[in-house]
């Protein structure tokens, strides 16, 4: 890969490391006989922003879990920087962060401790430097007020931002976002876009972003993949995607609200009967 020579730089320490690429090869995933992913293959280049789009239930979250190494594909392989991400050694070598769709904050820990857990456990820096990192990350996402709160005291959007901040503190080389802007207002969404772009441009962080947000996808993505019913139906640059004539894609990307749609008619009938 031609971009593999680019370096990721630790945003806090400035330490350099190789940017990592991801290789998804023929991945299928079956849960109790139901195929959720079928034969998916794509590469994510080091330092690239890869956006995954698709309707709800198409298997985007499941695919991210395979890439993060939380589950093993039923068929096929996933490689992160050439290695199996489910192995502890790989995760030891490659800093990988996943922003969960529901946040997955540690409910028994305060926001501060949620963010400080990773650097503390991996003994990166003194308590003072950890504090600095944590506060910095919280400030970027404008949630520094929540620092001593517990997750149960936060709104959905705040949880999401704290969870992104927690990923930033990990100084990842590969960052996986599962619908990072789904519960956020447009201003915050714009901030998230900036963060993703900045991490790529200045630190060569590889990002895979699952989102429904068409404008986010088309502005920051290097490439976009679209998942439908567990199949990767399109893979291309935002430009290629915007120019597509494929009716299924057009329907998905530019949905029309049709009051005269027979489906709504049916609902009306049910109500009156």
């Amino acid at each position: 890969m031609e971009t593999s020579c680019s370096k990721t730089r630790n945003p806090f320490t400035g330490a350099e490391a190789n940017a990592v690429g991801v290789k998804v090869d023929g991945v299928s995933k079956t849960y109790a006989g139901t195929e959720v992913l079928s034969n998916i293959s794509f590469d994510v280049l080091p330092g690239e922003i890869f956006v995954l789009m698709g309707p709800s239930g198409s298997g985007k979250s499941v695919l991210l879990r395979q890439i993060a190494g939380l589950e093993l594909p039923t068929v096929g392989t996933v490689r992160v920087d050439g290695q199996d991400p489910s192995l502890e050694e790989t995760r030891d070598r490659v800093r990988l962060a996943l922003v969960f769709q529901a946040g997955a904050l540690f409910n028994s820990l305060s926001v501060y401790d949620n963010l400080a857990l990773y650097p503390r456990e991996h003994r990166s820096g003194t308590e003072a430097s950890i504090r600095e990192r944590v506060m910095h990350a919280l400030r970027i996402l404008s949630v520094e007020d929540a620092v001593s709160k517990f997750p149960s005291e936060l709104s959905g959007g705040m949880k999401k931002r704290v969870s992104i901040a927690r990923a930033l503190v990990m100084e990842p080389q590969l960052l996986l976002y599962d619908e990072p802007t789904s519960e956020l207002d447009p201003v915050m969404s714009a901030t998230i876009s900036e963060i993703i772009a900045t991490l790529k441009n200045e630190y060569s962080v590889t990002s895979i972003v699952v989102t429904h947000d068409r404008s986010l996808a088309l502005t920051i993505a290097n490439r976009v993949g679209i998942l439908m019913d567990g199949k990767l139906i399109t893979l291309g640059t935002p430009k290629e995607l915007a120019a597509t004539k494929d009716p299924a894609l057009v329907d998905f990307l530019y949905p029309k609200i049709d009051i005269q749609n027979p489906r709504f008619k049916k609902l009306e009938n049910q109500k009156t009967s």
């Binding site: 993060a68 190494g69 939380l70 030891d92 990988l96 962060a97 996943l98 540690f106 456990e121």
Partner: peptide, 9 residues
């Protein structure tokens, strides 16, 4: 899962 991705067993 979050702990696993953080490589904290």
């Amino acid at each position: 899962d979050a702990l696993t991705t953080m490589n904290i067993p």
